[in-house]
Amino acid sequence: MSIYRVHFTWKSKEVSLKARSLDLTHPYFVSIKDLILPENSSLIINPAEDEFREEFSEANHIMLPFQSVSLIEEIPEDTVGGSKTLNFVKKKEEGTER
């Protein structure tokens, strides 16, 4: 069985989430079901992850506009292991060098 990792923009942040089911048949949305959210087990609190987890923790199905999705990866479930990740990446502003 595969796991899908979907990279998208949410509240001006680049977000990556994992799900067990993905449906691309809707003409305007990516339908994501059976979300795999990270467990809140670390002592370090990431406010962005907490906000996302709080917003979607009870949802088992979300629909994202195609325009907000930048990449969809299909990953074999056995390579994912027990890690459940949700990564937030700051967008690099134009004109700044890093």
Rank of each mutant, 00 (worst) to 15 (best):
G95R: 00
I45N: 04
L35V: 11
D50W: 07
M1W: 05
F66C: 07
F66A: 02
H26T: 04
A59L: 01
V15Y: 07
W10D: 08
S83W: 11
V89I: 13
I44S: 06
I75V: 14
F8N: 03
N46S: 14
K33D: 12
P47Y: 01
G81M: 08
F8R: 10
E93K: 05
S2L: 14
T25I: 00
T25S: 15
I45S: 06
L37P: 12
A48V: 08
Y4E: 04
S16N: 12
R98E: 10
T79D: 08
R5C: 04
L71S: 11
T9C: 05
F56M: 00
S70I: 15
E51I: 02
M63R: 11
I62W: 12
K11A: 06
P47G: 11
E14W: 04
S2M: 13
L35S: 11
A48C: 11
T79F: 05
V69T: 10
G82D: 12
L35C: 14
S12G: 04
V69D: 04
P27M: 02
I62E: 09
S2V: 10
K13L: 10
I75G: 01
E97L: 12
S42K: 07
K13S: 10
L43S: 10
T9I: 15
I36A: 07
G82H: 11
I3Q: 07
D50P: 01
S42G: 08
R5W: 01
H7Y: 15
D50G: 13
E58S: 07
D50N: 13
E54D: 14
S42Q: 02
K18Y: 03
L43I: 08
I45T: 08
P76V: 10
K13P: 04
P76W: 11
N46V: 03
L24M: 06
N40K: 12
K11Q: 04
T96V: 09
F88R: 03
H7V: 08
R53V: 12
T79I: 07
A59K: 15
S70T: 14
E74Q: 13
H61M: 00
E39W: 02
F56H: 06
G81I: 05
F52E: 07
S68P: 03
E39A: 08
P38W: 01
I44M: 13
K90R: 09
E54Q: 15
S68L: 03
E49K: 11
D34T: 12
E14C: 07
D78M: 06
K18P: 05
F29D: 12
F52W: 12
E55C: 05
L71K: 15
L24R: 09
T96H: 03
L22P: 02
P38M: 09
H61I: 00
E94I: 01
S12C: 03
P65R: 14
P76H: 09
K90F: 05
P38R: 08
E58N: 15
T79H: 08
E97A: 08
